[in-house]
Design a protein around this nucleic acid. Sequence first.
DNA 1: TGTTAGATTGGGTATGACCGAATAAACGCT
DNA 2: AGCGTTTATTCGGTCATACCCAATCTAACA
Lengths: 249, 249
Amino acid sequence: MTARQQVQLSPVQVPKASDVLAEDMRERILRGEFPEGTALPTERDLVTQTNMSRATVREALRILEVQGLVRIKTGRSGGAFVQHPDGESIASSVDLLIRGRQIRLAALLETREAIEPACAQLAAKYRTEADLDTLERANESLSDKSGSLAAFLQANVDWHVGVAVASHNELLTGFMLALSRAIYTSTDNQGFINTDVRLTTAKAHRSITTAIRNSDADAAVRRMKRHVHSYAEAVVKFEERTKIDLPEG
Amino acid sequence: MTARQQVQLSPVQVPKASDVLAEDMRERILRGEFPEGTALPTERDLVTQTNMSRATVREALRILEVQGLVRIKTGRSGGAFVQHPDGESIASSVDLLIRGRQIRLAALLETREAIEPACAQLAAKYRTEADLDTLERANESLSDKSGSLAAFLQANVDWHVGVAVASHNELLTGFMLALSRAIYTSTDNQGFINTDVRLTTAKAHRSITTAIRNSDADAAVRRMKRHVHSYAEAVVKFEERTKIDLPEG
DNA sequence: TGTTAGATTGGGTATGACCGAATAAACGCT
DNA sequence: AGCGTTTATTCGGTCATACCCAATCTAACA
C-alpha cells in the first residue's frame, strides 16, 4: 500500500442553495438584464430549471423580495416581477438601524444637520416646477392653523422629504425619508410642538422654499442650516426641561 | 325568513403567515426585548408554538436574517441568534440601490460632497485616540509608493470610512461605508489614478487628519470639502477626456 | 354584448422525511 | 483524574407531495 499523499484542503464552505440562487438572480437583476416589471419564471418552473426543491426556490425569492428586487403577486398570472430598489428600501433599513440601536433623538437631529443643508443646496440647483409645487403644498398644509398636530407633523415630513426629492439625488432622498420619519415618530409624543414652534417652522420653510425657487443655493444652505440647527437646539432644550420637570423619569 | 341585512365588509386582506411571524419577532427584537446574542427558539419549537409549518417558520427567519436582525448558525446548539443591525446592513441596501438604479459616478461623488464634510466636522468633535490611530494607519498605507493600485484604493476607502467612524454617528458611518465602496469599484477600472493623484490625495488626507486631531472642526470641514470637490472635478475631467479619446466608446 | 359561472394558474401552507454539520456527551487511554 | 477520541444527538438545509385559495382567464349564458 503506497503512502497516501496527505492532500491539504482549506475548510470548504458550502453556501446555502437558496443563497446561491438568490445571488444569481440578484446579480442578473442588478446588471439590468431584466427591465423593470419583467416576470421571473414561476416557482414551479424554477424548480425544474434549477433542480432545487420548491422550498429552496421560495426562500430565494423571499430574499429578493425583502431586498426590494422583486415584487410578488399571487393568483393566476402572478409570480415574481422585477423591481429596482428605491428610496423606500434604504429608508426601511435605516429605520431598522435606528430602532434596533436605539439611536437617540439627538443623534438623529445631528445627522439631519449634517445632511439636509446639502439637500437644500442641490435642490436649489436641480429643482423642477413640480418639486416647487410639492413644497408649496406642504407649506400650505403646514400653515393651516386649524390642522391637527398629526397633520402638522405630516406636512413637516412632506416638506423635508420634498426638499430631498428636489435634490434629484436618490441616495439622499432615501436617507432623508427614513430620517424624517424617525424624527417624526420621536417627536410625536413629546408635546413639544406648540403654536410658536408652528409659526417659526412655517416661516423658515417658506423662506427656504423661496431660496430654492430662486436657485439661490447659498441662501438655501444657510437658511436650512439655521432652521435645522435651531430646531435641534429647541428639542434638546425641551428635553432638558422635561427632565427637570420629571426628575423621577 | 327575515330579510337579511346587507352587511358591508371592506376588502379583507390576508397577510402572509410568514410575514406576520417575522413582523412579530422583528418588533420584539427592535423593542430590545432580547439582548444581542439571545437564541431564538429552534425552528421545530417555533412550529409547535405557532402552529405553523416549518417552511413558514423558516421563511420568517430568513426575512429576519436578510434584514440583519438574526444570525443563523447550523449544527447542534445552532439556531437563530438575535443581532442588532449595524452599518453593514445600511451599506448593503445602499449598494443595491446604487447598482440597481445604475447611479452614475458623478451622482455618487455629488453625494459624497454633500455628506463627508459633515462627517469631518463631527469627527473633529468626537474623535478618540483609537480613531486617530486608524486614520494614521490608513495614511501610511496610502503614502506607500511601492503599494499596488488596489492597496492604494483600499487605504483610501479605509481612511474615508475611518473619518465616518470617527464621527461616532452610526447612520453616517453606514452611509459612507456604502458610498466609499461604490466609488471605489467605479473608480477601480478607470485608470484614473496616477502618481500625481496619489501624492495629492495623501497630502490632503494628512492635512485633514491633522485638523481632526486638533479638534479644529472648521478646518476639517473646509479641507474635506475642498478635497472631495477637487477629487470629483478631477474624475469628471478624466471622464470627459476619456470620452474624447474614445468617441466610439 | 355584457354578465356570470366555471376552469386554470400560481403562490401560500402543511406534512413528513432524510442529510450533514456542529457539538455535547460518553468513552477509553494514559 | 485528566485528556484526546469516538459516538450520539441536535438543528438547520433540502427535498418531495399534497392541498388550499385567490386572481384571472374563458366560455357559456342571458
